[in-house]
Every structure is written in structure tokens, then in C-alpha cells.
Amino acid sequence: MTRYVAIRLAQAALTIYLILTLTFVLARMAGDPTALLLPAETNSEDAAIYRKALGLDKPMFEQYIDYLKGAVHLDFGRSLRGGGPALDFITERLPATLKLAGISLVVSIILALGLGLIIELTNSERLRTFILSGALLREAIPAFVFALMLILLFGVKLQWLPFIGMNGFSSYVMPVATLSSATLALYLRVLRSNFSDERSKEYMRTALAKGESRSYAIIREAFPNVLLPFITVVALNLGFLIVGSVLVETVFSWPGVAYAMVQAVTQRDFPVIQAGVIMIATVFVIVNILADIVSSKLDPRIELS
């Protein structure tokens, strides 16, 4: 176990290093930020001075080394726009994003598992079709549009729920609903196919031969087996959650990392982009390791080594 964690941490470090490098390359490829940062009337001499002050005139490799050195000390420099430490800008916002994404993740899992189990237990084709077509309909609507529909209905028309910013429990309802419902159809499909795989397994026959009822066998025997591949799928789809957060945070004015990042990208605010990508990547890597550990805890056949 310790050995496993050590290896995974080493892998994580490598992943983060690669992401650091990729971020650097992509950000620099995107072009010179000074065109965006300076007013249009700036002449080229001043732009050059500015570039120099930001260290953008140095050879790429030197910039890269500086950047890596800084990253080791969690120093991504100061925001080109605001001047504050880039990492602070991200870490201040990280909790809001983590709360939203975390709650949405949990809700989406509970929702999918709950509905998936209801479908399996009732074994009603009609109920299944009903739930799945609802989920598919939701999947077909882009998150942005879905969020706006929610806002118009529950925010403007009925005025039940707030939709600007993060203020208390009720402000979570619509963003969480948007994010967690996006993956519902996918999860239900995964559950459905896993369940039908497991239902035909021989241990299910053993369970019935022992005197278990079908529902009992579905919950106690098939479910733990279904959970394993499901967790893998959920972990693989965390990326969705991040992409979804970008839209949802923007529409709901959520004070999280995602929309600050979008802003940083449009403004070529490299330090903030880099700090943000690294933070998100780190969270991503950690969550993936956790998912691995959880599924290995659930699956005795996996040895963590």
C-alpha cells in the first residue's frame, strides 16, 4: 500500500511536470500577451520595455527554467493584469469551485445510483425508458442553455432560487442541478450495461439458490460489482465536470477558478493560467488517485502494488 502510494505519487509528480511543460508551451504558442495587455496606442518601444519587464524577452528555454524553478516553490509569478500573486488569485477561488464540483459530483453519483437501482429493482421497461429519455434530453441540451433555462424558470419566472453568486444553500441548487444532470444519461447507460452483465453472472444464480430474493441479490451481490466499473467511469469523466464548471460558473456568476481562468486565457495572463492549470491538474490527479484507492478497496482482486 505505501509502496503503491509512493509509486502513484511519483506518477502524479511526472504528470504534473508534463502538464506544467505543456501549459508553458501552449501559453507561449498562443502568442505575445503584450498586444492584449497594453492599450492599442502603445508604441512598439514601450511594448518592448514592457515585454522585458515581464521577462518575455528572455530566450524561451531560460523562461521555461525560471518558470519551473518558480513552480517548485509554488511561485507562478504575479498576475500580468492585477499584479497580485497568481497563485493567490487561484487559491482564493479554489474552495468555491471545489465545493460546487464536489457537491455536483456527489449528487450526480447519488442520482445515477439511485435511479439506476430503481430501474433494476422494478425492472420496468417503461420506467427505464422514461428516466433514460429524460436524462438523454438533458444530455442533448448544452450546459449553458440548460442553465439559462433554469434561470428563466426558477430564477426569473417563479423567483424561487437565486442565480447570482454563491450565497447560501439555495444558490447551489441550480448550478449543482446543471452540473450533476449533465452526466446522468452517461452514468445510467454505464450502470445499465454493468448491471445486465452482472445479472447474468453465475454468482447471481448462487445467490438465488441460497434463498436470496432478486432485489436482495441485486443490491447485495450485483451492486458492489457494478460499483467498480462505475467509479472508473466517474473518475474518467471528471474532466467533464471541469469543462462544465467553466460554463456553469460563468452563467451563475460563481466565484470559482473556472471563470477566472477563462478570463485569464482571453487576456493571456500567463501566470494565472499556469497557476490555475496546475491547481486544477493537481486536484484532478489527487481525485484520480483517490478513485483508484476507493475502487481497490472495493475490489479485493486489485492489489495495490
Partner: peptide
């Protein structure tokens, strides 16, 4: 259900797959 497992016990061909892999 009351008869199965109490009055009638069953043994199958493939013990590996007939046992649930994730339960002790």
C-alpha cells in the same frame, strides 16, 4: 425462497464464478 438454501442446497460447476468475487 424458503426452500432454497435451507431444504435444498446447490453446488455448481464453476466455483470461481459461482462465488461473488467482491464479497468475502
Amino acid at each position: 425462497r424458503k426452500v432454497r438454501g435451507r431444504d435444498i442446497g446447490m453446488v455448481f460447476q464453476n466455483p470461481m464464478t459461482s462465488l461473488n468475487p467482491v464479497r468475502t
